[in-house]
Structures are given as structure tokens and as C-alpha cells.
Design a protein around this nucleic acid. Structure first.
Lengths: 161, 161
DNA sequence: CTCGATGCAAAATTTTTGCAGTCCC
DNA sequence: GGGACTGCAAAAATTTTGCATCGAG
């Protein structure tokens, strides 16, 4: 039924387990169910959609755990948070998140494109050096209009997820 | 009492009025009160703080109107939306928003720095040309740690607001 | 005048939290 | 076995909406 593989690849699963253990956190069934759900879903979704999917994998997963786990997935780099003012917050799951990509959101059709933005790496270094700040994550979010309105269909996303 | 001028400069006020009229919307007292409140407040604040300030200017301003006006201020370019996962959403008011700046948020002290990021202009053009998307707004949000933790105080913000 | 805009308060959404019981290590 | 984790449900926090009234043009 789902378009995406029903299982996260071993690499992602191990990455999450390692992350948890390295922080002294426990590898639990609900946490794994949420991770798996993130891989079953299409690339962008809301917290609520992720919960629904997680419940399908392990119907005991609660909303509370979902919200308690989401920050972990984000910190671990498995899931990315996006907020473009549209509807709700979206989360994107990539087998391996490419750190220097921008999210370009079509304001007409709400489609989200992942576009390389390699200069962000350089920018991070510059900020770091010039201001003495240790740079963590970077998010570049762009709103744009795609030709759909007139042409009828959006350009295919470049996200390889 | 406030650190910032109590009145928006004429340019910003006119810009907002023009914006409203150009869209066939009315220039009302509540809308102006909210605009003024945005100028009284320090550079970053929540919707709730903005409401409180607007009420001090015109105590009849309601939460509903605040939330109905905020999108207008954002579209008009007077206010900018920031979401770094910290607490709530922040809005920034600049007399003239510099479009190509990044928001760098210290994950220790939550201070927000506005840093020039001129390459965003070039990036927008590139996206536009290569993908056939008409680029609208761009937001670059960076998390970082500033030396406060050890040094006791954060670097002064570079925002000239 | 007329119709958009407003205030109020209720509702809808989204996220957080306290606590008793559960299960990983 | 102990303490971290969970589910539940209640609560908190944030945003939206319906409707009668108000006021800008």
C-alpha cells in the first residue's frame, strides 16, 4: 500500500539506536515504532499523521510519546522540522538527511522541494569564525510559486527520498 | 520607558497604509495600533506580547484582530516570522526589513542575532532560473551556541533595529 | 449607507504534563 | 530490580471562528 519501503534501512535504524544509547536513553518499542512510521510516510507530514502511522505499527503508541520522541528524532538527524506557515508543522524523513539543502515551498500547491544549497556550509563557517558562535543546525526555507497554476502540474521534486 | 521609538517612522506607517489600500482593505484603528505596538516592542516577541502592547495603545484591540492582522503585517514586509523551536513563534519588526539576513539563535541564551546573508539573493535567482519557480520570501535560520555559557554574556546583536 | 472589520467568547488545534503502571537494561 | 519510559487523560498553550455590532470610505 505504501509507496515507500516499509522498513527504515539498517543504517538509519542503527543510527537512531546508537544515538539513544549514546545519550543514555533506552531503545523502546514505541520509539522504534515512531521511527519506522517516519519511513513509511511520504516525505512530508504532520505530527498527527506520524502518530496515526506509528499506531498502525504499534497501536499502543500514544500522542504523548510521539511528542516526546519527535525532538529526539530531530536531534538525531533522522527527521527535519519545517514550518512554512502552511497548515501545520511538517517533518521530513530522509535515510540520510543532507544537511545543506533548502526547502522550497510552492505557495500554490504546497509542494515542498529539497534543493541543494551548498553555500550554507561556507556560511556556517563564516558565522562561526567572525562572531565566535559555534554553529549548529541551519534551515533555509524559501517560498515560491511553481508553474502549476497555469501548466497544471508541478515540477517533480528533486528530493531523492 | 521603551528602548525603541514609540512611533513607527512615517515610511513604515505609510507603507502599511498603502499596502492595505492597494489590497482594498481598510485602514482601521486596531490595525494601526498593532503596527505601532510592533515598533514599541523589542525586536523579538510573541503574538501574545504583541497583543499586550497593542492593548496598551488601544485597549479595545482583541486577540482575534491581532491574529487576523499579523498575516497582513508579514505579507506587507513589516514583520517577520521566526520559528526556531524555542518557546513560541517570534516576530521581528524592522523599520525596513532587510530581506537577506539570517536569524542566528543562541541555543543557550535564546538571543537572536540578525546576520547579513547576501548570498540569499543570488540563491533566489538561481532557484528561480534553474527550476522555473518564482521565488518569494526566504528565511535562513541558524542555531548556534554563543560564548555566554562560559563568558557570562552574549555578544551584542548586530541587528540595528 | 454599506460592507468589511471588530470584539467577544466559544471552539478547535496543537502540545505539554502528572501520575500510576510497564518494561528496558 | 530499579529507574527510565509509557499511556492516559486532563490541562495548557496557541490559533481560529461565528455572530451581532461597529465604523471606514
Amino acid at each position: 500500500m505504501s509507496v515507500v519501503a516499509d522498513e527504515p534501512d539498517v543504517k538509519s535504524l542503527d543510527a537512531f539506536k546508537s544515538f539513544l544509547m549514546s545519550k543514555g536513553l533506552r531503545v523502546t518499542q514505541p520509539r522504534l515504532a515512531i521511527l519506522k512510521a517516519a519511513f513509511v510516510l511520504p516525505e512530508h507530514y504532520t505530527a498527527e499523521e506520524l502518530l496515526a502511522q506509528a499506531c498502525q505499527i504499534d497501536d499502543s503508541v500514544s500522542r504523548a510519546t510521539l511528542y516526546r520522541t519527535l525532538p529526539l528524532l530531530i536531534e538525531c538527524g533522522t527527521v527535519r522540522e519545517i514550518d512554512v506557515g502552511k497548515e501545520c508543522k511538517y517533518y521530513k524523513c530522509c535515510d540520510t538527511i543532507k544537511p545543506f539543502q533548502a526547502q522550497v515551498v510552492c505557495s500554490d500547491c504546497d509542494k515542498i522541494f529539497e534543493i541543494d544549497a551548498p553555500f550554507m556550509e561556507w556560511y556556517g563557517k563564516t558565522v562561526s569564525e567572525r562572531l565566535g558562535l559555534e554553529v549548529g543546525s541551519q534551515r533555509l526555507q524559501v517560498t515560491a510559486r511553481c508553474p502549476k497554476s497555469e501548466a497544471g502540474e508541478c515540477i517533480k521534486t528533486t528530493c531523492d527520498n
